[in-house]
Every structure is written in structure tokens, then in C-alpha cells.
Write a protein that binds this DNA or RNA. Sequence first.
DNA 1: TCGATACATCAACGTTTCTTGATACAGGAG
DNA 2: CTCCTGTATCAAGAAACGTTGATGTATCGA
Lengths: 108, 108
Amino acid sequence: MEQATLPATARVARWFHALSDPTRVEIVRMLSHGERCVCELQNVLGAQQSRLSFHLRVLKDSGFVTDRRDGRWVHYSLNREALDEIAAFAAAVRPGKHAGSCETACCS
Amino acid sequence: MEQATLPATARVARWFHALSDPTRVEIVRMLSHGERCVCELQNVLGAQQSRLSFHLRVLKDSGFVTDRRDGRWVHYSLNREALDEIAAFAAAVRPGKHAGSCETACCS
DNA sequence: TCGATACATCAACGTTTCTTGATACAGGAG
DNA sequence: CTCCTGTATCAAGAAACGTTGATGTATCGA
């Protein structure tokens, strides 16, 4: 049934797109250590504020991070479930699972 | 130490980029059922030949698929290791692994 | 209320990516 | 050798993406 409920292709593509940029991969790595505010990401990554804000929005829109306002600061943190979904997709399409069950239909 | 051997950021971004397009996600799904030739992918996906060839090249260059020529036909198949690496990355950055070990350095 | 700080948004621009149609190449059939 | 089929590559245009600098918004402190 996992198979039957595989998420829509467009949705999967959007997940992967969210992690297809080096800056966003770095952000995810930093957030894997815990919640971070924009200013710290900015310091560590050496990125301009508006650039970081852009990438954080992409990650947020795709469900990889959530934000929490605390006074002047906004703290971002990773959404574990999104990462799990990525891993689940990779596992679901892993070759071998369907071996022999679906024959090719051309080039006969 | 798992931490120390995480693959380079740019490499990770390239993996995810390879799966950031709906056509390529579809291709990967089809190949998860076994080896396929271009003409069958073409039929099933309803895509033009040059378009498919373009996406297959992206997948091949990023290590997700391998090709095998058999007479006139070229058969593509998934590379299980690339999928495993994706899953491994997702697992490595999963929040909670480092909980509490890396305090924030600003917004004090 | 005023200024400063943290962050988001916007417009403009250059770059990359994707699609299409044309052409090239390779292998098999005759 | 010549034609046909399967696939790859290329050039051109369109669309999506990422960066930058400017501006907007919210919160805090004085």
C-alpha cells in the first residue's frame, strides 16, 4: 500500500528541488544541529541577508523547515517528516523491490 | 565520524537536482520496476525522444542510472547506490541526532 | 515617539534549465 | 552499400532560478 500511496510526482520533484541548491544544503546541515536564527546562518554561511531569506523561504514552502518568531528573531528548524519522506521515496524506488514482476513491453 | 565523512555540499546538491524534475522522477519510478529502453519510456511517458534523451543524460551524469547498449536499443537501469546515498543524507541530517550538542552562537 | 536591529519582500538582471525541431550517428535488414 | 530504426547531440528560444540592492515591516530599547 505504500506503493499505492506514493506521493504525486510533482510533489516529489519539489522536494528534491528544495535541496538542489548548495546554499540550501548547507542550511539543512546547520539546522540538523538544532534550531538557528537567520543571523547565525548568515554569519556562518557568509551569505547576504536577502539571499538567505530567499532560500529559507524555498525550504519553508517545500516543508523542510518551520519558523518560530521570538521577539526580534526568527528561528528556523528542520522538519523531520519531510526528510523522512525523501528517504521513503528513495527506499520505495530502490531497484530490486519489483524484480521480475514488471516485464518490459517493447524492444522484443 | 559519520559527520566528518558527509559528502561535499555541491555533490549533494547535484544529486537532488537530478531528481528535481517531474519527468526525471517518472523515469526513476519506471526504472524501479526494472531495466527499460528509451522507446518504452517514450511510449509510457508520452515524451518526445530528444526530451527523454536529455533527462536520461542528466540522470546518467549524476550517477542515478546506467545504460547498456543491446544492438539498436539502449537499456537504462537504476543505480541503487545513488538512491542509498540520498537516503543516507536524509538520515544523517535528521534532527535529533545532535540534539543539545551544538548550541546556538547568537541571539543571546 | 524615535532610532536601531532582525528579517521579509520586491524589482531587475544574469544564468541555468527545459523544450522543440533539426541533424548526426550507430546498428540491423535487405 | 543503402535504407530504416533507435538514440544522442545541437542550436535556439522560453521559462524558471538565484543574486543583488533597495525598500518594507515588526519588535525592542531609549
